[in-house]
């Protein structure tokens, strides 16, 4: 129905156009809520976090810089921050008991599935795929699950220093790759 870019809808959302705002929220609510849920675990908290993320995006719309990436990625960055605030605000949470998921394409089959689900994420998927598995998993745990490097270390038994190094290397490689491909 709204055959316009996320960025165009966001401009309307930021400037107070009710129709564009509604379309913007409805288009991105599944991503925002999904990430919030992945980090905070509880559906009620996730809803609060997701709402807060949209409110912050509206409040700080001027700080979005389209040269740095898509509005969806920027909004998800805000969502992650809101989720971390929530998790930290209620004290140390219980760590997930399950192993770290193979999200973000730990194996190529998953990557293909992820690419299919997120067509706008194909660049980052390709770059994630090029990372060594240990780096990719560490970065995914910190970003998509909102874990600290110490929590990743406790969950995996990998020394904390190694986890930190892997996260740093992974993020640098990713950044370099993304910047190379931006005209």
């Amino acid at each position: 129905m709204w055959d316009v870019s996320d960025e165009a809808l966001f401009a309307g959302f930021a400037s107070g156009d009710p129709a564009a705002a509604a379309a913007f929220v409805r288009r991105l609510e599944r991503k925002v809520y999904g990430l919030a849920l992945a980090i905070v675990g509880d559906p009620g908290d996730a809803q609060d976090v997701a709402q807060e993320a949209f409110v912050r995006a509206w409040r700080f719309a001027d700080s979005f810089d389209e040269r740095r990436g898509s509005v969806a990625a920027w909004l998800l960055g805000i969502t992650r921050n809101s989720a971390l605030d929530c998790v930290r605000g209620r004290g140390r949470r219980a760590l997930p008991t399950a192993e770290l998921p193979a999200e973000a394409g730990a194996d190529p089959t998953d990557v293909d599935e992820v690419v299919g689900r997120h067509d706008d994420a194909s660049r980052v998927v390709a770059l994630m795929r090029e990372l060594p598995a240990g780096q990719r998993e560490a970065l995914a745990a910190v970003t998509l699950q909102g874990l600290s490097t110490r929590e990743v270390s406790e969950l995996t038994g990998i020394p904390h220093g190694t986890v930190k190094t892997r996260v740093r290397l992974a993020l640098r490689r990713l950044r370099d790759g993304l910047e190379d491909r931006v005209p």
């Binding site: 991503k31 969806a72 990625a73 994420a121 995914a140 990713l174």
Partner: peptide, 8 residues
């Protein structure tokens, strides 16, 4: 880092 979040 924000771009990675698109994979959530």
């Amino acid at each position: 880092a924000d771009e990675v979040l698109l994979l959530a």
